[in-house]
Each structure stands twice: as C-alpha cells, then as structure tokens.
C-alpha cells in the first residue's frame, strides 16, 4: 500500500493521511493484472481519530495498512481536531465538511475511489467512534457500514457534568437542553433514521470490558437492535487503549464486503 500525508486547504491549512491501494499487496491483486487491478473502483473507509489525536494516529499506533491491504481499501484519515465531527456551535462545521467538501476534494483527487454508498464505510475510535456512528446515522445515503470502537455513543446522559468539561460540550453541541433534542443525540438520531425509510447503515459496535464506556455501549447496542438495525457487537477484556483498537480495526475490516 502507498501512504499519503497531506496538507490541504480546508478550515485553514489542514492535515490528512490516506492509505492508497497498491498493486501486489493483497491476495486478490496477485490473481489479476495491474491493468485489471486499477481498472476497478476501490472501496473507501473513512477513519477517524480519537479526542486529542490527529490524522496520523491510526497509522502510527496500529497495523492499519496491513489490514487495509487485504480488502484493497482506500483509507482516509482526516484530522478533525476535537470536534466529534459535528457542526460545532462555536467552531467549524465539521459534519457539513466531512459529508460535503471533503468528499468533493477526495473523489475529485482519486478518480478510482468509489463514491457509492455500498462502497463507503466510516469508523473511528472513542470520539471518532461517536463521529462515525453520527455520520452514518445522519447521512445513511453516504455510508453503508459504520464502526465505533470505544465510542461515547450515548454522549448526552453520561457526559454533561461528566468526563468532558461542560464548557467544551456547550461550545460544541450546545447546552444539555439544546443538545438532547438535536441530531447530536445519537439515541434520538437512531430513532429518527430508523423511521425515515432510508436504507439503514450496518452498525459495528465494540468496547473493552474494562472501559468506562462499556455499559453505555451495551445499552446502545440493545437499543439499536430494538429499532431494527443490523448490529455487529464485539467485546474484549481490555480497556480504552490502542491494543484494543488495533484488534478492532482488523475485525472491522474483516466484516466489510470484498472488493
């Protein structure tokens, strides 16, 4: 696989890492000519870092490239700051960018990447897991599978007055009263999307048993199942840590459809 480390004009000059399929890496590619390999569209995984991280994290702390090679995936890792991938109350409109401008830029730049829903997947760890689930539920027409590893998927109840300083949450998604009624409440959003008649994303949820978010993820899994979502669940005797995310990105890529 090839790797791209990019600075581009986004909200200011922004950074992004991209894993690019290269002929000869996957078992599948060895059974085809180079012409055939590049002649077919590639699937795309949008992969988001956690709070306090940036676009380089997934490539530095995991074996992402090796796992991505087995499915010949483009993997796009944008830096999204600590935005949770939402249109921030006080800050940049990240959701609009991730589902709009960034896709324009990416698909224009890489004509071999498929922009079709069935070929686009979104995943992330911790904050990025929330962002991925939010993106897939709010824009189910763009993504067919989402993955959240140790994500604070029930952000509302647990976080106001909790782990993140309340001022930071208010700047991001507003006061509790505002946020709980908005699409940033993934409980409300999942209900809304389930009723919308749109094709529902397949949802992968995973959390370590020793993670403080374990209970929340169990509840959210059961809730999604009741709503009729196709949920894949995984848990391991691990904490909120890169060892777990390295396992999970491998398992997640394994459930994605083959090219």
């Amino acid at each position: 696989m090839a790797r791209i480390q990019m600075n581009y004009t986004g909200f200011g000059t922004a950074s992004m890492d991209i894993v690019v399929p290269q002929y000869g890496d996957s078992a599948a590619s060895r059974n085809m000519t180079e012409e055939e390999y590049y002649g077919k569209k590639f699937k795309v995984l949008w992969l988001i870092h956690g709070g306090g991280g940036n676009c380089t994290d997934w490539l530095r702390y995991t074996e992402l490239e090796r796992f991505a090679a087995e499915k010949d995936l483009f993997v796009v890792c944008p830096s999204i700051e600590n935005s949770f991938g939402v249109d921030m109350k006080k800050g940049d409109p990240w959701f609009t960018f991730l589902t709009g401008g960034l896709r324009e830029l990416f698909f224009d730049m890489f004509p071999n990447a498929s922009d079709q829903r069935e070929d686009n997947f979104v995943a992330g760890l911790s904050m990025g897991g929330y962002a991925a689930t939010h993106l897939a539920l709010a824009a189910p027409e763009l993504y067919s599978v989402s993955g959240s590893f140790s994500g604070p998927v029930k952000l509302m109840d647990e976080y106001y007055g909790g782990v993140i300083k309340e001022e930071a949450l208010i700047d991001m998604i507003g006061t509790y009263e505002e946020a709980v009624q908005s699409d940033n409440n993934l409980v409300l959003l999942a209900e809304k999307t389930a009723k919308s008649g749109k094709p529902l994303p397949k949802i992968y949820l995973a959390c370590g048993k020793f993670d403080h978010l374990f209970q929340m993820n169990n509840e959210y899994r059961d809730f999604l199942k009741e709503l009729g979502y196709d949920v894949t669940w995984d848990e391991e005797e691990m904490n909120h840590e890169w060892g777990f995310w390295n396992h999970q990105i491998e398992k997640f890529i394994r459930i994605l459809p083959a090219r």
């Binding site: 791209i4 990019m6 004009t9 690019v20 290269q22 730049m109």
Partner: peptide, 10 residues
Amino acid sequence: MAVMRLTFRS
C-alpha cells in the same frame, strides 16, 4: 491547494 508526501514501493 494540497501538498502531499506520497510513500510507495518502487
């Protein structure tokens, strides 16, 4: 504008 470092096998 985008400036990128591409790393690949030759």
